Simulated scan of single mutants.
Amino acid sequence: MNRFWKGIILPLFNTIKPEVIVEVGSFKGENTKNILSSYCSIYDAKLISIDPNPHKDFDLEYFNNEFGDNFKFFNSMSLDVLPNLIDYNAILIDGDHNWYTVFNELKTIEKNFNQDSFPFIILHDVSWPYARRDLYYDPDVIPMEFRHPYMKLAMFPGVEKLGKIGLNENLNNAIHENTPKNGVLTAIEDFIEDTSLDLAFYSINVFYGLGIICQNTEKNRRMILELFYESDMAGVLENIYLKDRFNKENVIKNNKSKIKSLNNSYDNLNNDFSILLDINKDLKSQLNDLEKNIDNLENNRDELENKVSELNSSLNSQNSLVKNLNKRIAEKDKDLAGLNDV
Rank of each mutant, 00 (worst) to 15 (best):
Q115I: 00
P83K: 07
L227D: 09
I42F: 08
N65V: 10
I109C: 09
G209W: 05
V22G: 05
V308I: 13
V24R: 01
I48G: 01
N296K: 13
D341S: 12
Y208L: 00
L106F: 02
C40Q: 03
S314W: 05
G158F: 13
I294F: 09
N31S: 11
E193I: 01
F207W: 06
R221H: 05
N2Q: 13
F63W: 10
K307T: 04
S261V: 09
N34L: 02
S196I: 09
D335I: 11
R3S: 13
N70H: 15
A337G: 15
S117W: 01
P119C: 06
S78P: 07
F71K: 10
E61W: 01
K181F: 06
N220E: 12
Y150G: 13
Y241V: 08
M151A: 15
N316L: 05
N216L: 03
I175G: 03
E298L: 01
Y136S: 03
N104H: 11
E177I: 05
V126L: 13
I165H: 05
T179Q: 03
F207C: 02
N247Y: 08
N255Y: 13
G158V: 09
V251I: 14
I175H: 00
N254R: 10
I175S: 04
K72E: 12
I35G: 06
G158A: 04
D57F: 00
H124C: 02
K17G: 01
E238Q: 13
I91Q: 10
A45E: 02
E61I: 12
N89G: 11
I21E: 00
S41I: 04
N89L: 06
D244H: 07
